[in-house]
Design a protein around this nucleic acid. Sequence first.
RNA 1: UGGGGCGUCGCCAAGCGGUAAGGCAGCGGCCUUUGGAGCCGCCAUUCGGAGGUUCGAAUCCUUCCGCCCCAG
Length: 364
Amino acid sequence: MHVHLPAAGERIAIAMSGGVDSAVAAHRLMQAGCHVLGVTTRLWRQGQACDDNGADLADAEAICRHLGIPHRVVDLREPFRRLVVAPFVAAYAAGRTPNPCPGCNARIKFGLLRQATREMGYPWFATGHYARIVRSPLGPELFRGRDLTKDQSYVLYQLLGGGLRETVFPLGNLLKSQVEKIAATLGLPTRHRAESQDLCFLPAGSYGDFVQRWAPEAVRPGPIRGIGGETLGTHRGLAYYTVGQRRGLGIAAPEPYYVAQLDAASNTIYVAHAARLGSHTLEASALCYAHGRPPAAGSWARAKIRYRSAAVAATVWPLRHARARIVFARPLRDITPGQAVVLYQGERVVGGGTIERALTEEEA
RNA sequence: UGGGGCGUCGCCAAGCGGUAAGGCAGCGGCCUUUGGAGCCGCCAUUCGGAGGUUCGAAUCCUUCCGCCCCAG
């Protein structure tokens, strides 16, 4: 599979996180003969001493100096707060479980950041994501990363609408083990930091507390009810739970209970046993499609409804207003409003959108 | 007050003389650019209390305490 790469001599900016992956990606671009600029966004980060990602910026700066490329910082704290954090909090207040990553990629990294680097005179743009971009007669297409265990195409689907032009993912053809090997030869001046954290703007495990601070109405204790309406317990606040969740309910029973639904209007969590959960159909909004074209109604694809879940065979039924219904070959029990649904055909990303709701079997 | 039943981990619950199953909940870990799921591990030296019988008791006896049911 031929991965789209810029020609030697092209000017390309690469988003540097301060971690190993983006450092290796930058190195690959240098080897390809590109003029490389390292850029890092100053982001708003809750819970840090100085409310920004200063340590990451310092790491990125040090790595660029080590590699011998220029480094610039772009301050996007305000837009980040407005375009990523605010909608994130609002979604929780509405009883949803948002995944801010796809929108952040589209609006911040591949939006404002890349716009800034273009203005700096670097038309090309790269990141250390594990995904591939492949040329086709219709334009660039997005594919899963070769290392399927690290594949990040799920959080990139919103680039399908044109965000892939003059874009490169230098790690798309590599395995994580290969990246680590290359990194070892570079002698990078990086701290040993955790490979991955939670959402980049939150300290680990503090979702509820974070939402508590910014949307206290979403974090009030309320009832946990069974499907029949019977009260089974009390929850700490909707923001501490998500559809499909088992832990934290505190209900002693012969079988485990799972969250079936969050109802913001009544501040109620509905739960059920595994056998009573599941739906074949979901409705999604804000769909993006490869080359901007919805597939034919009833087309088969494989759909992922959560970052780490396996893709499941499904048919796609585009609707008006960029909405669609996805009908799965088998019922799924954790269709979660706010999460992304991403559609694949083979290793190619053919579409994606935001899950609005699961349809009951009667509705579908 | 008579008659009967029951009291085993936070909840449910095996065990019925041979040295405390299991489920749920909880806790910890693995995994992981989203708390999920899943998987792995931990979780009653003790069976309402006190005596007694026995080589040995949660299991038998006595008594006390606390619940429940039926009588009244």
